[in-house]
């Protein structure tokens, strides 16, 4: 379990959590990025434009 940085609600985490993974907060809908796994730490996932290179 970890805390949503947006609404403070508890967010349930599945096993095999990976750094970089995006978890949706079921309470407020915020997209949360997994910053660390031991212990689990969440931060607001950045908005990123869809773009590409060569």
């Amino acid at each position: 379990m970890a805390e949503c940085v947006e609404c403070g609600a508890e967010v349930s985490l599945h096993d095999n959590l990976e750094v970089g993974e995006i978890i949706d907060c079921t309470t407020c809908g915020a997209e949360l990025e997994v910053i660390d796994v031991e212990p689990p730490e969440l931060d607001k996932a950045p908005e990123l434009e869809e773009d590409w290179g060569e």
Binding site: G20, I22, P46, L48, D51
Partner: peptide, 23 residues
């Protein structure tokens, strides 16, 4: 510079950092 991208890997949404691309 854009150093992070949102990707889908094995059906999971992820932020992947360390990209060297730009707008």
């Amino acid at each position: 510079r854009k150093s992070a991208v949102r990707v889908v890997e094995d059906g999971k949404k992820k932020i992947k950092r360390g990209d060297h691309s730009g707008k």
